[in-house]
Structure formats: C-alpha cells, structure tokens
C-alpha cells in the first residue's frame, strides 16, 4: 500500500467517525427526548428535531455580549474541535483508527477536559452572575469526576498492561473473559456515573430545566446565541455520544471492526449506532424515574463512583 492510500484511508475513517458521531449524536439527543416524552405520556418532538434546531441556529444572527473577549468566542470552537479530535482517533467503529497509537485513554480525558474548561472560561468571560455560578458548579463536579475517571482507567489498564484505547477494545474482542473480570466491571460502573455527571444528565444536572438557580451546564451557555450556541449544542451532543460509544465498546466490543476493510468498518459504524442508541434509551428511561440530586449530595454520588473505581484498581493489583 502506498503512502498516499494510507493517508487517504485514515482521513476517510476519521471523517466517517466524525460525521457519524456529529449527526448520530444529534439524533441520539432526539431519541432520548422522544423516549422521555413517551414515558411521560406525551408524543414529543420528532427524533430529527435537534437537527432542525441546529440548522436554524446557524441561520440566526451572531450575537455576542459587548463585554465578551476572545475567550467567549473561542470556547465553543475549542469544545467542538477537541471533541472532533478525540472522535477521530477513538476506537468507535474500528479498533484500528488513524493515529490509534496516540489514543491513550489518559490523554483523551485531558483533551476532553480542555473542552469543558474552555466552556467554563467562556461562561466566566461575560461576567454574568449565572455564568459564574454555572462555571463554578461545573468545575466542582469536574474536579470530583476527573480523579474517579483516572482511577477507573487505571483499573482497566493494569490487567491489559496498556492504557491505549484501541488495544483495550481489541483485547475485549480477543479475550472476552477480560470484560467479565471484577476490575473491569467495577471500573465501568464508575464510568457510567462519570458519564452522567460529565454530560449533565440526571441525577446530577437536569438538561430540561428552566430554573436558573438549579442549572449547571445550561447556566454556562445562557449568553450564547445563534451559531455559537449551535456549536455548543453540537459539541455537547458529540461528547455524550463519544463517552457512550467508548463505554459500550469497552462493555460489549462485538461489532467493532477488528480488521481493515470497508465492509467491516461500515458494520462497525452500524453496530456503534445500535449500541449507543440502546445506551441512550436506557439513560432516558432512568431519567424519567429519577429526580435531580441536591447539589450538595452530588459529591456523594461522585465519591461512590470514585470508590467503585478504587476498588477496581485495588482488585486489579491484588489479582495480579
């Protein structure tokens, strides 16, 4: 294979993953809203509603507060860009993504953190009280979720002797007994709690709230309008889809393409869509039956996640 073909193939794979996660992520949000509506006895907006919303947002006027500096403008771009980079190199549809050797789990976490921190800075930049409140809350939760996530990754990477994500997913395919090991189950349990916290779902944050005093993520984006808001929505849905995609691929890796080739890659994309949709439906169903935790009880939930991850890491070290 010539160098050009390799590069073209890598660009194709990365592009296909980015497009699938961008469009599929919006549809995922639509599916989750639909499931919630149905369980509440409503018909609800159509599944493609988030796509319509996004299309409209990009036709609206670009409006920025007078006091805002470049930080406010850059934040949504950084959010989407970091999500795209991580999606491109993550083992979502194939265990051989381009630049897969650089898809270290720890590195991915910090690249995603760059996106959340830039959004928090963008919210602070406008100087509105709600923006600062949202940033402070998001950073508090991030500071509690991040260590739990790192320890969970540690627990998963000790038995595999690597924290490289494509290899972790590949080893799940090659040695299915690794998935059922206690440390992997504990770590993934902690991962679920962290996904709920990081993507602002119930019981940590209510994505449908209109009550400024209880908002976390929504409070940070109150000042964004038009195309900027569109980028924020896109970035957030991509991050949710990416995290869910990583979770399902670590939990049920079957369907992910383990060899190169267009057919297995397309099957991998289909499997990814199906698995992530099921995960989204499960989260939406859970949200209907759960309430938002009081803010001061969120640390207890995240501490629970941390304990799970810690137990996983200890198990991994003791079992060796």
């Amino acid at each position: 294979m010539t160098g050009f073909e390799e590069v073209a193939g890598a660009v194709l794979v990365a592009g296909a993953q980015i497009v699938t996660v961008a469009v599929g992520g919006l549809l995922l949000v639509g599916v989750m809203r639909k499931v919630r509506s149905r369980l509440e006895g409503r018909i609800g907006p159509p599944v493609r509603q988030p796509l319509l919303d996004l299309r409209k947002l990009f036709t609206k006027q670009r409006m920025r507060p007078e006091e805002a500096s470049w930080v406010f403008v850059a934040a949504p771009v950084v959010l989407v860009a970091t999500a795209m980079v991580v999606v491109a190199i993550s083992p979502l549809a194939t265990t051989r993504p381009p630049l897969g050797q650089s898809a270290d789990f720890f590195a991915i976490v910090f690249v995603l953190l760059l996106g959340s921190v830039s959004l928090a800075l963008g919210a602070l930049d406008t100087g509105t009280p709600f923006g600062g409140m949202g940033s402070s809350r998001a950073m508090t939760i991030g500071a509690l979720a991040e260590p739990a996530l790192l320890v969970a990754i540690l627990a998963m990477s000790i038995p595999a002797h690597t924290s490289n994500l494509p290899v972790l997913v590949h080893m799940g395919l090659a040695h299915p007994q690794m998935i059922a090991s206690p440390e992997r189950i504990l770590a993934l349990g902690s991962f679920v709690v962290i996904i709920l916290a990081e993507s602002g779902r119930l019981p940590v944050d209510n994505p449908n709230t209109h009550l400024e005093l209880t908002m976390i993520h929504e409070a940070m984006v109150l000042e964004y309008a038009g195309p900027d808001l569109g980028l924020v929505t896109l970035g957030e849905s991509m991050r949710l889809t990416l995290l869910l995609g990583l979770l399902v691929n670590l939990l049920v890796p079957w369907g992910v393409a383990d060899r190169s080739g267009a057919v297995s890659f397309v099957i991998g994309l289909g499997a990814l869509a199906g698995k992530v949709a099921l995960a989204g439906i499960a989260i939406a169903t859970f949200e209907v039956f759960s309430g938002k935790l009081r803010l001061f009880r969120v640390p207890e939930l995240l501490a629970g996640g941390f304990v799970l991850a810690m137990l996983g890491a200890v198990t991994a070290m003791v079992v060796r």
């Binding site: 509506s37 509603q49 964004y224 808001l229």
Partner: peptide, 21 residues
C-alpha cells in the same frame, strides 16, 4: 403539558432570550 403537547410541533420554552426566536 401532556394533554396538548406543543413540543411535538417543534416549539420549546427556553431559559434565555439569547436562545429564543
């Protein structure tokens, strides 16, 4: 609410005038 369900027609109440049409 569940009885009239305006959301099915693509309308939604939002928290900020910046998000509103």
């Amino acid at each position: 609410g569940p009885v009239y369900d305006a959301e099915r027609f693509g309308a939604r109440l939002v928290a900020s005038p910046r998000h509103a049409d």
